[in-house]
């Protein structure tokens, strides 16, 4: 078994164990209805975490994700409510703006040779600031298209609802898995995370790949913003505050090495679901308070960081 599979396996086992434990305490959690809500409630986090997975796999970090989500919701609200554009056009504009924003950050990281965290920190300030300059107040979105989308879902056996938002997340994960594991771009991302020097010597276009990675991350953050606006019907500059941390946590808990090079997009899905599980359990329980989510996620994060230290410290095993 490949070494990098071990953290993923651990995550999966922990998730299954935690889910069984949760069900044994709260039998109602074993239903497609809960599962459907799981997907809907965590859709924006999941989509953003996919982008974060690529960034972290390449050895970087993107702190601007939450801010880009917030900015996108405001931009969409402004385009629809103030400029009376059709939501689909608003979505397209928002996605283009977000992607361009990420590409600029990627270019800055590559050409200015500064750590990604400081560039994306500037990006985070800029996106949050830009959003509140557009509109400091929350803008409600009312549009027949929104209502229609929010009302459509696929009925799952057992009464669960797979909403449009949930489907978008599943589709993003499916495409991202192909992108990461079956395309040259995906290989290049892993190569950068393994060793930038080696990657360059082996012919990986470092500049292009870096820019694409951050553009992709911001594009997905923008898509998460679209989903967020569908989910809440509002644009607000302080939406999705701190989501970057949740996304990073989901990626790491999903078995991706924070220093890059090892990991799986599918693991991120489990990481997101594990966070969702903790949240749902706390809601079901009723006596526990919401802050336990953060503590549990922090503990999981710590466990996985230590686990990775142990797994990746070992030397070669075959000859």
């Amino acid at each position: 078994m490949t070494r990098s599979l071990r953290p993923l396996l651990a995550t999966t086992l922990i998730f299954l164990f935690a889910y069984m434990l949760a069900v044994s305490q709260q039998p109602a959690m074993l239903s497609t209805r809960v599962l459907g809500n799981f997907l809907t409630d965590n859709a924006f986090l999941g989509i953003a975490a996919v982008g974060m997975t690529f960034v972290i796999l390449s050895g970087g970090i993107d702190l601007s994700v939450g801010a880009v989500i917030g900015f996108t919701t405001v931009l969409i609200a402004v385009l629809i409510m103030w400029l009376n554009l059709h939501p689909l056009i608003a979505f397209a504009v928002a996605l283009i703006v977000a992607t361009a924003f990420g590409a600029v950050m990627g270019a800055a990281i590559h050409y200015l040779r500064v750590p990604s965290f400081i560039v994306t920190l500037a990006g985070m300030f800029l996106a949050r600031g830009g959003a509140s300059v557009l509109s400091p107040d929350s803008i409600g979105i009312e549009h027949p298209f929104f209502t229609a989308v929010q009302k459509s879902y696929i009925l799952l056996p057992g009464g669960g609802r797979l909403t449009v938002v949930g489907m978008i997340m599943l589709a993003v994960f499916a495409v991202a898995i192909l992108l990461a594991h079956r395309t040259r771009f995906g290989s290049n991302v892993y190569a950068l995370g393994g060793s930038e020097t080696s990657a360059a010597l082996m012919g990986v276009p470092v500049a292009r790949t870096t820019i694409t990675i951050y553009a992709l991350s911001s594009f997905l953050a923008g898509l998460a913003g679209v989903v967020f606006s569908l989910y809440t019907s509002a644009g607000y500059s302080l939406n999705a505050l701190g989501v970057e941390l949740d996304a990073i946590a989901a990626v790491v808990i999903g078995g991706t090495l924070l220093t890059g090079g090892y990991g799986f997009v599918a693991g991120t899905f489990i990481g997101v679901m594990l966070q969702g599980l903790v949240q749902t359990y706390i809601v079901f329980d009723g006596t526990l308070s919401s802050w336990w989510t953060k503590i549990v996620v922090g503990v999981l994060l710590f466990m996985f960081i230590v686990l990775q230290r142990l797994v990746f410290r070992a030397g070669p095993r075959r000859t």
Partner: peptide, 17 residues
């Protein structure tokens, strides 16, 4: 100067898969 984190075959074919 190869990529320790990738499979042997990928190390052989990176850039020309």
């Amino acid at each position: 100067n190869l990529l320790p984190n990738r499979s042997v075959s990928e190390n052989l074919f990176l850039g020309r898969q």
